[in-house]
Nucleic acid binder design. Structure first.
Lengths: 313, 313
DNA sequence: CACCAATATTCGAAAATTTCGAATGCGAAT
DNA sequence: ATTCGCATTCGAAATTTTCGAATATTGGTG
């Protein structure tokens, strides 16, 4: 089978399997049978002439090649959707603001940061897209997004000339399902040696900070799951796979929606969120609305915590 | 038909039709029948819910939406190929240098600039890709290419932090098919009022310079064709559609290969070519080979014309 | 250990999509 | 007016995708 038979569907199935971790779950999400997914995955591997997953027992682990392919697939997909959206809205052009959300940013945080823009007198039409920082920066310089929401400022190493706008910050809390909470809350944090932990991958700001925090206190939890998307961590956490960290501002929300309990706060860590744009002085009305209002409506209530400063590069 | 049925083939057919200008020629190049192309093009238009071409008589002209879609399609395609290449070579990794060539750069020039790297003791393995400047800059920051060959340095407006390395420069000559040459050579350049002209689009350096040159001399040629890819201009020129400009260093080559004649030189215009990389001081051995040797082997022989300077941003 | 539940895969057949041959209509050139 | 080249429509053939049924393998459990 030739490479030109490569279909967006192949890529999509592959992406979903990589995200879900298993063909069975992917097939449910895609409303397809497992055979189909399995078959098409094989076809994709044959077309690319490389193994995307390592089959360990019934577990599918992404190979190195698989990880690379995944990045490409996501980017290709984003482009496809961007094309569709842009063309579709070409006639009735009312896209005021296209926002790229780095996938390390919790969705609820993104919502909180973007919500102000929707409540303006002259409401902004938002168009959201998720992706890796790298892929979103490409979208930014190509003007496919007006703004990126990220968990860190960009610096010289990214090779993109853009500006960071601090939107707000929050502390980090630790959450767990009720049974785990009962066990580990009493002597938090020093009783966490060997405790099962779910973490953001350590190339994220949050992941690195949390690891550092534990090391500084000579605590060694047992890391069970690492992943980029925090929504996935919430699910695992809800299921009781392990303890996990999340923004303190989301405490009540997490408790309510995912039936987990707060077992403590990681004092000293502050998570910050940034808007990244190409303009130092923001002219784009949609972006302006977001950055201005986000700063009024600080993430953490009370306190002097969430400053509204601006840092270049 | 749903969007997920979008196939790489749809995009490819669309791209080829846009390039060739007619379904018939596209079908020849793709080894398919015209019905197929026509049908699939229609399917694509229906999926995107927008007209890609305006049907004027039997001429197909890209609509605005079509032009936008074309850019996306090219970028998506490049990503697909990059993925394929990178994964394919993941095992036997011997890609020393991935180069992006801006589509405004004549292919022969690109060849001349890259050739030195192939003649080294320790030969470099090159991997080339073409595209718009914007799309290539995205590739550069995502490390999918190590180097971009362009007709202009990048500046602050691109929002990419990268460095320009002047590789060489050349004058501009005007060419024409024998019959046109006979008519217009005698009183070049002032007899060119109303002469049929083929131009690079005026968002290219070459196009803008040439227009300026004519305006300064109060000459008003009649512009017949504008396009980005200079190879296409050569073809039109060969067919006698009009006079066209090209790098003086390619005079002999154009005369031989396209049976056209030189009718004069546009004194005062110098076309420069640049390598753009993320590193100011180049460490990448492949890139080093290209930039170093390109400067020794200057584009225009003799003269003091081609300097080897380096400019930041 | 045997058993069970969950998963991935293989193998045909059915469904959907793409391609082509034949035929039609339209525009441009002679 | 005629003819040629091109785009398009239609139905049939070829190809690709999907699914149902069956099989194999893993991991856990009594």
């Amino acid at each position: 089978m030739r490479i030109h038979n490569l279909n967006f569907r192949h890529l999509r199935y592959f992406m979903v399997v990589a995200q879900e971790g298993t063909i069975a779950r992917a097939s449910k999400r895609l409303n397809l049978t497992p055979q189909t997914i399995s078959g098409q995955l094989k076809v994709l591997e044959e077309m690319l002439e490389i193994e995307l997953f390592e089959r360990h027992g019934r577990r599918l682990d992404l190979t190195d090649a698989g990880r690379q392919a995944l990045e490409y697939a996501e980017e290709i997909f984003n482009l496809g959707e961007a094309m569709q959206l842009q063309l579709h809205h070409a006639g009735n052009s009312r896209i005021n603001c296209a926002v790229g959300i780095a996938d390390v940013v919790p969705k609820s945080i993104a919502y909180k940061l973007l919500a102000p823009a929707l409540e303006l007198d002259d409401p902004v039409h938002l168009e959201c897209r998720e992706g890796s920082m790298e892929s979103l920066l490409g979208d930014l310089i190509a003007n496919r997004v007006d703004l990126i929401l990220a968990d860190r400022p960009i610096d010289a190493s990214t090779h993109v000339r853009a500006y960071n706008h601090l939107l707000g910050e929050t502390g980090i809390s630790m959450f767990a399902s009720p049974s785990l909470a009962k066990r580990y809350r009493p002597d938090f944090p020093h009783g966490l040696n060997g405790a099962p932990l779910l973490l953001p991958t350590d190339d994220t700001v949050a992941g690195a900070n949390i690891m550092k925090w534990f090391r500084a206190r000579h605590i060694e939890p047992s890391i069970r799951v690492e992943c980029v998307d925090s929504a996935l961590i919430d699910i695992f956490g809800q299921a009781g796979t392990g303890l996990f960290c999340g923004p303190s501002v989301l405490e009540s929300e997490l408790q309510r929606q995912h039936s987990v309990e707060t077992i403590g706060r990681l004092e000293g860590i502050r998570e910050r969120y940034y808007a990244i744009s190409l303009e130092r002085q923001i002219r784009h009305p949609g972006v302006q609305a977001i950055t201005h209002r986000a700063r009024e409506l600080l993430l953490e209530t009370g306190q002097e915590t969430a400053l509204a400063e601006e840092s270049a590069d």
